[in-house]
Design a binder for these strands. Structure first.
Lengths: 360, 360
DNA sequence: TTGAAAGCGCTAACAG
DNA sequence: CTGTTAGCGCTTTCAA
């Protein structure tokens, strides 16, 4: 038993297909016609097929969502935000997990293109080159949490000025400092929803400093250029590069990075983890090496997660509004205005629990 | 600059559109024609539009994925499994989050129907009535982790016998006991990928029993009929119903349930949490009430999560292969065989850490 | 092996 | 206000 089509409804109601189409999409029609059509449609259990409509309009109307890893609580919360907004707009969401791999990401972009999904929200894994095809194809893209940079240079630039407007309102301080190092990677100029990494990192470092820590390390993940750069600035002077280590998106690599760091530099007394998986790794590695937190090592982590409170000791964190980020990204990508939507920078919050102590 | 269509390719290659279609889908064509077409297609950067194909074939070929909550680590891992399989099959995945609410679920099913997504994987929130429309519309559906039951009766029945075949191979014991209580809710007879709740719960209870615990409580979530029933059976005799409490899918409700339980029944010495959010709530509530784990209270939790190890004390758990479940569910729903695919029951594993101790 | 042609279900001109 | 008609891009008979 196949579904009724618009033609069936038209025949059964004794009207033309155009009339049915109009009635169903709120066009003009005489009250009686409208009523009859509606009745017949309900009676036949008619559901307009998105297939026909999409082909006709040459677009699907759905939203693509590309994330590095749904296993990461941050991305899960972000996704929930996107889905909540999409649902209230009645839009379907096509999801893809990139594993933080630019190639997979490129493949998924291709898939979305093939499906004519013309709007996408992404926590990007690849650089500007990965995303250029999507942009050129006219996709409406909004980035969340990170920005793809032009390949080549290594020091990230602040996002385009439009992005910082909101922050300035939030903490009353321009986020773009007057002086900058020379070589800069330019981020893609595309609307984005970011957290205020700079002030988050600064807060964390200052907090640690206030506790007396001098050798504080940074544990970074992929796509986190802005955080690292902010870290270098926050510690001031000539940063001890050995105290800055990276991992890719996996748990194993995060653990390896943390463990390696703690072993090669037993003199460090505090570490800031650039994400919840890094924080997890730091706690695990510390425990394995018999480092007491916070006596031997203070740890502070980017992103608040439910288990931060269950951890021993409870983790001090820089909280980010992940769900809001997703919701707002969806709002932006759905906004079909004439002008490109502005970017948004959301504030972080220091949540003090028990994983940081004074340097002994 | 719009995308090239099949017609453009045909013209540029001096052949008919049918030929292009054939070449691109691996049909027969003379080597030289094939080569020419392929060259032109590449040169024009031609990508076949899924829109046209889908309309013609009256189906999208994508997979729908309906989950209660992406914020829950279990569902996140499940989703990653589904996405991994879908990606290797080149199929897009349309995702929806139901919040464990049957109404939202029904709405999302409607949306998938409208999109002509004819295959769906779900951790169902609603009952059989919620899913009947999807089934009647001819959707290929595979359930994961839970099964929708016929509304009315309250005691769940084991899933259809096909489902237990795999388990019997796995642990050599038939999962369907000879004797059963009288009133039963029938699960929908649809392929599913489930974990062996019965043996998992039994293992947990026996472990606790071995430690000397007599008053062990159960903290249940939504859609967990089979686990509760297994719990009742595992504790044997007339179960103390006051020791069995439920919450809906939210963290708040889980915490309230746990806290309430601990306060009304201070005599209990052990609790099994029916999911990771329940476990989280149990630990939090215990801590709040100054119950020492495991001295005053032993806790064991369904589902292993990364933070179980970071928790204090590290949580003893019944691990479930969430990611595998997703992957296998996707395999099932993609299997386009003549016969309906068989269900799968996957084993659990007791992982002993530090949250259970002897009764003092 | 190939091309012409007929739609898939829908919307948007355009006429009436 | 309403019906007729022309496609959207693709696959698939059916002849040639």
């Amino acid at each position: 038993m196949k579904r009724a089509t618009i033609k069936d409804v038209a025949e059964a109601a004794g009207v033309g297909v155009a009339t049915v189409s109009r009635v169903l999409s709120g066009g003009s029609a005489s009250p009686e016609t409208r009523e009859r059509v509606l009745a017949v449609a309900a009676q036949l259990d008619y559901r307009p097929s998105a297939l026909g409509r999409n082909l006709r309009q040459r677009r699907t109307g759905g939203i693509g969502l590309l994330l590095p890893d749904l296993t990461d609580s941050f991305h899960g919360r972000l996704a929930e935000g996107v889905l909540a907004c999409a649902r209230s707009a009645g839009e379907p969401v096509v999801i893809g997990s990139t594993g933080d791999d630019p190639e997979q990401e490129a493949e998924l972009i291709g898939m979305l293109l093939e499906q004519s999904v013309d709007r996408v929200i992404a926590v990007p894994a690849g650089d500007a080159d990965t995303w250029r095809p999507a942009l050129k194809a006219g996709m409406g893209v909004v980035f969340a949490d990170r920005l793809p940079y032009e390949p080549g240079a290594t020091e990230p630039e602040e996002p385009a000025t439009a992005a910082v407007d909101e922050l300035m309102l939030l903490d009353g301080v321009p986020a773009t400092p007057a002086s900058r190092p020379a070589v800069r990677a330019r981020p893609l100029d595309v609307p984005a929803v970011l957290t205020d990494d700079r002030s988050g990192v600064r807060t964390a470092v200052q907090y640690l400093r206030g506790l007396g820590h001098r050798r504080v390390a940074y544990l970074g993940g992929p796509g986190r250029e802005r955080r690292v750069e902010a870290f270098r600035q926050a510690v001031g002077g000539v940063p001890d590069e050995e105290l800055i280590v990276f991992s890719d998106g996996s748990r194993d690599s995060a653990y390896a990075a943390a463990s390696g760091l703690f072993q090669t530099r037993p003199d460090l007394t505090a570490v800031v983890a650039g994400g919840n998986m890094l924080g997890e790794a730091a706690v695990l590695a510390a425990r394995e090496l018999d480092l007491r937190v916070p006596r031997d090592l203070s740890v502070i982590m980017f992103d608040d997660v439910p288990w931060a409170e269950l951890c021993f000791p409870p983790l001090t964190v820089i909280a980010q509004p992940a769900r809001d980020m997703g919701y707002r990204a969806a709002e932006l990508v759905l906004r079909t205005g004439p002008r490109r939507p502005r970017s948004v920078l959301l504030p972080t919050e220091l949540v003090i629990r028990g994983s940081c102590g004074p340097r002994l």
